[in-house]
Every structure is written in C-alpha cells, then in structure tokens.
Design a binder for these strands. Structure first.
Lengths: 129, 129
DNA sequence: TCTACTGTAATAGATAACTAGTACAGAGGG
DNA sequence: CCCTCTGTACTAGTTATCTATTACAGTAGA
C-alpha cells in the first residue's frame, strides 16, 4: 500500500523508508497531523524487521518530519511539508549529480546521455505511482 | 592518476574500480594489450587494501576485460573495447533509470526533473576528466 | 482493572564488504 | 643463484546493516 523496498538497492532499507516517507509528505500523499503506520504494522507490510522501521522513524523524528505521541503512534509535523519539499529536491539532485559525474568520467557524450534520460522518461511517462 | 574512489558512495569499492576500469577501456583511455597498474600499485594509489583491488581485477577477468600474465601483470584483452562500450551504456542506463523511478514515485514533475538534469550537465560541462 | 495497542530499548546473531597481514609460485634482471 | 617484481590465496578482524527476540512504559477502550 505504501512503499516499495528493494533490499538489493545499495541503499539501506531504513534509508529507503526515510526517503520514501519524505517523498510522500512532499508529494502531498501524507498531510500534517496525519498518523503514519505503526512500527509493527509497516514492518509486517514491508516484510522487514520492526527495528529497521523504528530506526527509520527515529531518523524522521530527528529531521523534524514526524513527532511521537506515546502510546498512540507518530504523526506528520506541522512544517514537515516545506522541509520535505526541500529535501526531495536535494536528495534527487545529489543522485542525479552522481550519475552525471560518472557518465562524464566515462567520456560518454552529453547528447547520448540526454538521449538515455529522455528515453527512460518516456518509459515511465504513462504510469501514475 | 587513474581513478577516483568514494568510500561512502553506496557502491562497493571493488565495484567502483570495475566500473571505472571498464569506462576507461570504453573511452579509449586504456587500449588492447596495454598493461594496467599492478594490484599493489593501484592499491597504494587509491589508499585501499590490495585485496580489494585484487577482487576487482578478478571480476574484470571474469568479464573478459583483463587477462593475466603470471609474474608480469594484467593486460587489456583483444575484444575488451566492444564489451566495455556495451557495458558502459548498460551500467549508466540502469543508474539513470533508478533515479528517474525514484523521482517519479516522489511525484516530482518531469519538467522539474529535466531542469535539474540540464542544470547539473551545465555544472560539469567545461571540465575534461 | 484487563487487554491490546503504541513507541522505545537492549541484546545477540547473521551477513556482506572491507581491512590487515602473511604466504606462495612464477617471471625477469643482476 | 638471489632479489624483486607479478598475481593469487588464505585467515582473522572490523564495521555496518539487518534480523530475531524480549522487555518496558504509556495510552485507550471495554
């Protein structure tokens, strides 16, 4: 229902949860005050250990995206949206920059690079989520 | 002189060596028959353990890019160029696809995505290597 | 109060990647 | 032969991540 986790992604699972949670807030899927799934529920859903989800949630608290209500759960904070909008741009920009640097070092022509990007953008274009 | 390694890259170090070696062959920096740096020399240069370089070289042998001359070193194989040209496209395409999928899931607008790509391309444009 | 949920914490174990150190066989130059 | 280079192999230890399990405190509803 919520996220998609790929264990063989290079990124740690908890990090994937953090990123996708931020993206959900930035994209308006999760709104201020809304409760997120409980640690155990999300862990079951993702077929992942509860500790891993708890760690992700702890990170999200540290980043001011979630706040805890003891005994009840965690909710999206008041100014989470603006934080996440900024974070989303930054996170994606960094990944793009890494790929482009590598492509540049490999002496792949920029036109060829643009072609790949456009091609892959077309490949994703139609679907929503 | 040769490569740039970033230990906190997500990618394993030996994998970075493999990729950059393939890119060097694809880009014409390394030619057929040319000797590559010895395990110990490259390890010293990259400030990395010799075992890590050895592992990368073993991968490159398995992929038919390098061949070993016992007691002398390793050299680029005859048909390494064409293999690496294909590998380069594939490796970069996969990374781009991963970023675009994530961006798509985050509901970032494609125009905004293109803007970031162009912006970062400009940022790299001038430099050679 | 009892029960079931919540987050949080702590411990131990598994696995992967990398480091550290040592050792061995082959090639080549003196 | 001796020395130095080459790749290769092995063991052990470190670190980070994730799993597995148990436990505890707070909240809420019957």
């Amino acid at each position: 229902m919520f996220f998609q986790i790929d264990p063989s992604n290079g990124l740690a699972i908890y990090d994937q949860v953090v990123r996708q949670m931020k993206f959900a807030v930035a994209g308006g899927v999760l709104r201020t005050g809304e409760m997120v799934p409980s640690v155990r529920e999300l862990a079951r859903e993702l077929a992942v250990n509860p500790n891993t989800v708890a760690r992700a949630y702890r990170c999200l608290q540290d980043d001011g995206v979630l706040e805890t209500f003891r005994g009840q759960g965690l909710a999206v904070t008041a100014n989470a949206r603006e934080r996440c909008l900024a974070d989303r741009l930054q996170l994606i920009r960094i990944r793009i920059q890494q790929v482009l640097v590598e492509a540049k070092q490999s002496r792949l022509a920029p036109q060829e690079l643009r072609a790949i990007v456009e091609e892959e953008l077309q490949g994703l274009g139609g679907r929503e989520e």
